[in-house]
Amino acid sequence: MPPSLTITHLYPDHLNLYGDTGNLIVLRRRCQWMGIDCIVKVLSMGEVAQAGQSDLYFMGGGQDTDQVAVVADFHQLKYDAIRADTEAGVPFLGVCGGYQLMGHTFLMGNGEETRGLGIINVSTRAPGTEVKQRCIGNLIAEINPTTYADMQTMYATPREIPRTLVGFENHSGQTYLGEGVEPLAKTIAGFGNNAAAAYEGARYKNVFGSYMHGSLLPKNPHFADYLIGLALRRQQPDATLPALADTEELAAHSYAVQRYSQK
């Protein structure tokens, strides 16, 4: 029987800015190419989450009003189950607004800080004097060495994978990592979490947050594979992935690194 993954897409009808669904398109196709059965389930407003039903969670960003609505629903109907899953090591990816939303507090357009989902110990605050406008632009960052070393073990045969993540950021909130949370990567170009420290994204267990929205996974196939690998290893600890060719993805990746590495 081929391996099978259930991906839960949280609130796609409310959180869908900046091409976030591209991440799902990529996870789905890569599973297909690797011979993994992949089912994407949607978990929306008003639906109760159940622990142990998902191998991977994904959440994008949305407009303020939608994000606020999501917080109330999440605490009522989903928090316990999803928190139990992430504590048990189920991978979770939140991107852009979704990343901010996962923390204890996040920032709305009017500058107000609001309670978040609280599944990772980060908080997002209003920019102080250190940043004048929104953090907008191409973002290049070098993956945390521990995570990078683990990423390399995912493949059946060793292969070269980029050390970098590339994407585009657009946010005003400044995210600070709390205790127990590691940065996902070190910023080479762009801002990332905040203008004070040159780090991008966060990792706690297998919960990941990133400011690289939209095209995070398409141009970072190694990170997509890592999420798939982490999910599979919870079913079968020695699972490995076949290496896909990734010619186009890696060409787009290295082009972005070359073109946008200068600040």
Binding site: G19, G22, I136, F168, H213, G214, P218
Partner: peptide
């Protein structure tokens, strides 16, 4: 648009 994320939408 400097951000090409829209290609995925």
């Amino acid at each position: 648009s400097k951000d090409v994320s829209w290609l995925w939408d």
